[in-house]
Design a protein around this nucleic acid. Structure first.
Length: 282
DNA sequence: TTTAATGTTCATGA
DNA sequence: TTCATGAACATTAA
């Protein structure tokens, strides 16, 4: 379910239900989800008895802030969390629930992931900065953090497709395959344009659209494209506002031209051939 | 049967 | 170094 608006929506729900809960036990049904140098046994021992003080987020990474460690969770394509009060815990876990956190108050947090692409990592407060540095994450897509000059300088050095650069999370975090197509459409930029071919004007517009789109989608709880639900079981509502993602064969909302679908960087890519010309709008 | 699906990371070769 | 491509992870549904 994972682009920044969906992850942020999950974070809000998790922070509400899991804050101040103490971990009593953890059940792991698919060990490959746990990315650690420790054995699964040691990993569990490290986490048990710790309290979740806060659930925060860096890019698309969820961060459970514990007593001594930070449990970092990436949902990748299909990861989801479901929270159950003691009296609501299902008799049998769902087929795709692979990790269960049992809290001392009897409630449980279930990690559910159909494709098992999600990952749990562990770091300490001391190693936190180095941990996220190793991921090479760019700034958050906010007015304050996302600096236009830096963004512009970085794009000038990249000859790869602008869509690829935006998906890399290195210049700015949070965009995935849906929002990147939306933002490029809003900005009138063809997804395969080399990043270093964008004009200053286009870069400034792109930055503004990234910030605005992520903000609007986050405010609406993200997009429910397939089966996404947040931790509280709520669907997102931004899918009603999508302009090009999944709209191939339908008219462009701006000019009526048929939206096309191509592959860029191995991902389905939707665009309007008139509003987003290959050679740019000049 | 084949393909594609809201993501990241690794290997290979140019 | 940089970049492109493909594979891997794994399951479901059209």
């Amino acid at each position: 379910m994972p682009e920044l608006p969906e992850v942020e929506s999950a974070r809000v729900g998790l922070d509400r239900v899991a804050r101040n809960k103490q971990i009593q036990a953890i059940e792991v049904y698919w060990p490959n989800l746990i990315s650690t140098n420790l054995s699964i046994d040691e990993w569990q021992k490290t986490l048990i008895d710790q309290t979740i003080h806060q659930v925060s987020r860096r890019g698309k990474y969820l961060v459970f802030e514990l007593d001594t460690h930070l449990l970092v969770s990436h949902l990748r394509m299909e990861g989801k969390y479901f929270y159950f009060l003691k009296e609501d815990i299902p008799q049998e876990k769902a087929k795709h629930t692979h990790v269960i956190f049992k809290f001392t108050d009897g409630s449980q947090l279930h990690y559910h992931d159909v494709r098992k692409f999600g990952r749990f990592e562990l770091t300490s407060y001391k190693d936190q900065a180095a941990f996220f540095n190793s991921k090479k994450l760019g700034p958050e897509p906010t007015e304050e953090a996302f600096d236009l000059t830096e963004f512009s300088k970085a794009l000038q050095k990249k000859s790869r497709a602008i869509k690829t650069v935006l998906l890399s999370q290195e210049q700015v975090v949070g965009l995935g395959n849906i929002y990147v197509d939306e933002v490029l459409f809003d900005s009138g930029i063809y997804p395969e344009r080399p990043a270093n071919s964008l004009t200053e004007k286009e870069i400034a517009l792109l930055r503004t659209n990234i910030i605005q789109t992520i903000e609007r989608a986050t405010g609406l709880g993200g997009s429910t494209i397939r089966t996404y639900k947040n931790t509280l079981g709520e669907a997102g509502r931004y899918q009603d506002y999508l302009q090009v993602y999944g709209k191939q064969g339908t008219p462009c909302p701006n000019c009526g031209t048929t939206i096309e679908k191509i592959k860029v960087h191995g991902r389905g890519t939707h665009y309007c051939p008139v509003c987003q010309p290959r050679e740019g709008n000049r």
